[in-house]
Amino acid sequence: MNTKENPTSSQQIELSPEETPVSVYDLTVAYHRKPVIWDVSFEIPPGKLVGIVGPNGAGKSTLIKAIMGLIPKASGRVQIFGKPYQKNRHRVGYVPQRESVDWDFPVDALDVVTMGLYKEIGWCLPVRKKHRARAMEALERVGIADYAHRQISQLSGGQQQRTFLARALVQNADLYLMDEPFAAVDAATEKAIVQILQEMKQAGKTALVIHHDLQTVPEYFDYVILLNMRVIDHGLTEDVFTPENLQKTYGGRLTLLEEATETMRRREQSL
């Protein structure tokens, strides 16, 4: 909890910036002047499966989008392996929230996975056989190769999630950002995703995963960020995933900070 005074002092082992997959300093993001996340600071050690946990509206998706530079920061700094996101984006893979996907778009599962290779293929060049073969391998790895040529709305919720996971896999990144990969999936898919996360970890990769099911947090993740507008706590799961911290994160939504924000907004409106 002393991260706010001194962002780096809570790290037990000092890592060089190049080894740190994500470091966030004093990040504030606001929509229409209302802060969504406030003064967020943390660093993630490499090779960890990191769960981002917090109530609805806590700013979890906002945090991920801000890390990727998809929404403007009001203040603060984000570094990916010691460099700004733009310099290291080839090392980042992304699994979007399922609500943000247009499932009626005329593409099949294989098309979606191939999109993960576009960056590697480059501007204007066509997708080749070898790229499709690699996409197919990724679909096999997540266990839905049989559905490669189904239009994506014809897939079950679990198959849809696996498709996007396969797309992240072909990106062959070192850091994965996943927005609720476990939402609306069947038990078999959940198991498959956990399995793949474990394989990623063994390969030394880092995953930042927004997660809703508190029950499974200690089982799935070895590092946790508790978020509710600001970082309540972050660290190894066994250290920070405590009842007191959860109470702080989920209980008493109307924190002083939020109250102040609300007053500020109302006053601005009445002007």
Partner: peptide, 22 residues
């Protein structure tokens, strides 16, 4: 023809397009 890939990606998933440099 030349930008089919880019048009497809940016129409389907502008976030991925932008974050991967398109």
């Amino acid at each position: 023809i030349f930008f089919l890939k880019e048009l497809k990606l940016s129409s389907f998933d502008p976030a991925l397009a932008t974050t991967t440099g398109f």
